[in-house]
Structure formats: structure tokens, C-alpha cells
């Protein structure tokens, strides 16, 4: 028995420890809320378990244990069951291969739960499908998107959320460094380590298929050119990252790498 117990403690500790590291690795705001909810849920579950333990932890030798009496009374009140000592009164006459049946009352809390959930169900259906006052999934989705667009507009107006109209090239080494990282991770496969082009075009000359300059480059990164295999990055990179990688690409200008592809597109001159 003892060994089992220690085994159990150690295992629980290990388990908790491993969650601890897991949990903080992700580190999001939303996680916080869910953590709280989970904590409350856990406490509730533990509460229920303890409560059940109290209700069911009845021994045969209850007689001498007066301090248990209130609990037993409480249980009696909740379940309206006939005490074990008097169960002869509700024992049914049947005997199935030695199995007998009592006919205890259905616990009042059980009936409350049963009918309560039925009423809840009726209300739920009414709200969503008769009075149409709850939002079904499409409405819910549209509201979510609308809210997001609204917030985005605010960001754009405040200048935090740059777009192809407001973007400017950066010379800040920190930004260029970030750009280089993004480039290595995402772009290198098609445009080459040095920007000389592989599947994608050469980025080092002054010829551009879709226009040069940070604004046009930003636009191509953002929306992509799907018919030619350049994917759209706007759901994967936020505008600051697109700006960083765009600025980095501009640093290739005039580097003339060894195996660069032939120039494609029009010669671009910065007119403004």
C-alpha cells in the first residue's frame, strides 16, 4: 500500500512538472484566460469528487461515530435514499441468480439535473432556431471578420499597420538583419542565397517584372503572383516583416552574383 502511494505521488509530481514547462513555453494571452478557466474547472471537479467521496464513504460501523451524523443526514437529504439498515423495507421480491434489487427513490438532485437539462435544451433550440436571437455560425463568423477589419482600419490609420502605400525602405541594420532571417527561412528556396534567382527571378539587377522600389516589392510579397508560383505572404508575415524582407532585398541591388539569372521585366528607375 505504502509503496503504491509514493509511486503515485512521484508520478503526479512529474506530471505536474512537465505541464509546467509545457504551459509557459507557449506563453499567450489567451492561454492565461484558459488557464484560469481550467483552474476553476479543476477545483470544481475536485470539489465534486470530494463531495462524492463524502457521500459514498459510509462504513458499516457508523453507530459509534456521532461526528459523521450530519454528513449522513446531508446525504440522506440529497439522495432521499433508504438507509442501509432499513433496506429490507424496499427490497423487491425478485432474485436473479442471487442478485436482488432495492427500489430506492430517485435522488431529488438527479431529477433536478434531468429535467433541468431538458428545459435548458428547449430554451437553447428556441433561442437559436425559433426566435433567431442567438447567432448561428455564419453570423458569428461575419461578426468576427467585421470586428477584425475594424481593428485593422484603426491600425492602418494610426500608421502602425503599414501597407503598400505607406511603406518606406529601411536602412536600419536591425531591420535588415531581421529581413535577412526571413529571407533565409522563406525565400531562399526559389530566389537563391544571393538573390540571383532560381525558380524565381533575379532580384539583384535593376529589371523588375512587377515594378521595382519598396512599394512594388512589398505588394508582390503581400499578394503574391499566384499564376507564376509566387505565393501570397500576408497571412504568414505581418507588415513589418514584409517591410524588413523587402528592404533586405533592396540591398541586393547591383551585387551581380556569379550565377545570376538573365534580367527579366522592365528597367526600373525611381521617379520620386
Amino acid at each position: 500500500m505504502k509503496i503504491n502511494k509514493y509511486f503515485f505521488y512521484i508520478a503526479t509530481a512529474l506530471l505536474l512538472f512537465s505541464f509546467h514547462t509545457q504551459l509557459f513555453a507557449a506563453g499567450d494571452d489567451a492561454l492565461d484566460n484558459v488557464m484560469k478557466t481550467m483552474l476553476i474547472a479543476t477545483i470544481i471537479v475536485i470539489g465534486i469528487v470530494l463531495w462524492l467521496a463524502v457521500i459514498y464513504s459510509e462504513k458499516n460501523d457508523i453507530d459509534g461515530q456521532t461526528f459523521k451524523a450530519p454528513l449522513i443526514k446531508f446525504r440522506q437529504w440529497l439522495t432521499k435514499s433508504t438507509p442501509v439498515e432499513r433496506e429490507q423495507e424496499i427490497l423487491l421480491s425478485h432474485d436473479y441468480d442471487g442478485i436482488k434489487e432495492l427500489d430506492n427513490r430517485i435522488p431529488p438532485w438527479f431529477s433536478a439535473l434531468f429535467y433541468g437539462t431538458i428545459i435548458w435544451g428547449i430554451i437553447y433550440l428556441m433561442v437559436f432556431h425559433v426566435f433567431d436571437s442567438g447567432s448561428v455560425q455564419e453570423k458569428e463568423y461575419l461578426a468576427e471578420v467585421q470586428q477584425a477589419n475594424f481593428e485593422k482600419q484603426i491600425l492602418i490609420k494610426s500608421g502602425v499597420f503599414i501597407n503598400e502605400e505607406t511603406v518606406t525602405a529601411s536602412n536600419d541594420p536591425a531591420v535588415l538583419n531581421e529581413g535577412k532571417e526571413i529571407y533565409t527561412k522563406n525565400c531562399l528556396a526559389c530566389h537563391g542565397q544571393d538573390g540571383g534567382g532560381l525558380v524565381g527571378p533575379n532580384l539583384t539587377d535593376e529589371f523588375w517584372i512587377h515594378g521595382g522600389g519598396i512599394k512594388n516589392i512589398f505588394k508582390v510579397i503581400k499578394y503574391g503572383v499566384p499564376q507564376k508560383g509566387m505565393i501570397s505572404w500576408q497571412t504568414q508575415l505581418d507588415p513589418n516583416k514584409m517591410k524588413a524582407v523587402g528592404s533586405y532585398i533592396l540591398t541586393f541591388q547591383g551585387t551581380k552574383p556569379a550565377n545570376g539569372k538573365q534580367p527579366e521585366g522592365e528597367k526600373w528607375t525611381e521617379s520620386n
Partner: peptide
């Protein structure tokens, strides 16, 4: 009920 040698709690339940 066989293993516990006790009657089933409630027939109506």
C-alpha cells in the same frame, strides 16, 4: 452486484 454481494440500488432508477 455479484462481486459486491449487494442488492442493486434502485429498480426505478
Amino acid at each position: 452486484p455479484k462481486a459486491a454481494n449487494r442488492p442493486v440500488y434502485s429498480y426505478r432508477l
